[in-house]
Design a protein around this nucleic acid. Sequence first.
DNA 1: TATTGTTATACTCTATAACTATA
DNA 2: TATAGTTATAGAGTATAACAATA
Lengths: 150, 150
Amino acid sequence: MVTSSSAQQAPGAAQDGLVDALARAAFTTMAVLTKAAADNDLSLTQLRVLAILRDRRLRMTALAGYLGLEKSTMTGLVDRAEKRRLLQRAPSASDGRAVDVFLSPEGAELAGRLTTDIVHALSPLTSKLAPAERRLLQTLLEQMLSPHDS
Amino acid sequence: MVTSSSAQQAPGAAQDGLVDALARAAFTTMAVLTKAAADNDLSLTQLRVLAILRDRRLRMTALAGYLGLEKSTMTGLVDRAEKRRLLQRAPSASDGRAVDVFLSPEGAELAGRLTTDIVHALSPLTSKLAPAERRLLQTLLEQMLSPHDS
DNA sequence: TATTGTTATACTCTATAACTATA
DNA sequence: TATAGTTATAGAGTATAACAATA
């Protein structure tokens, strides 16, 4: 089944093998990301927040949109990260109701360190491929992830 | 950064682009899996349990091992799934302390339906690739995920 | 003594609903 | 009236520590 290791090909479902490989790659990659986060006492969601805010300053609602979460969920999430001095809140200049969220210097520093950690942690996987294969894999993934609608 | 969309190449870190693509593919795939689970009132963890038990009968501790969770976490997880008639518990025949967990008929039926749902939900992505590209992507992912240690 | 599973407890993540303050 | 964010509340997922039963 998908997400498991057995790839039983249903007749006519020629994508099962790829779907299975994608699911397994996803779980493996997520495990690496989760561990990199846990090693720094972060949840996967907190890791994503740091990644998203690395080059952006967003309102609470916009951040919720990026994460696919409810705005009420953001309050606690940002509260905890702010208490740890990773994020900062500031009232929006243009809208009295809105609150901007952005990385603190410490948060930016941690985000940078996490990037390095993750690249290193994934290298046992990526190094199984030759350079040309890595480029090919990257190209195929990007093509698959591209927003093009054709 | 990794997990975000901006791929800033650090000098010498030639894997950043691939790591970014892997992370984005992981989040996209996990989003599909999470939605397929949520559409059936399951968490991602419950989905994984169904997938793992699809062709296995495991003890609580072994199941915890597959999931990378503590055994104490399994109790509640299995409790809830058992209450919904998706899983069943039975005392181990060989060890009086152990408890076997396995899919109920309803659980197996749901696991099968989920597989179909996921393949369909991922098809907008996979269909962006030509058949030969899909096979190539699958091969590269499998090579990367292979347990070989060279 | 060591292992298997459960229980007790606590914290994070998440959602829904109700609230406030701005627009 | 509608939107931005918070608060209150509740449930799932997770871990640690202590425990009972069995090995």
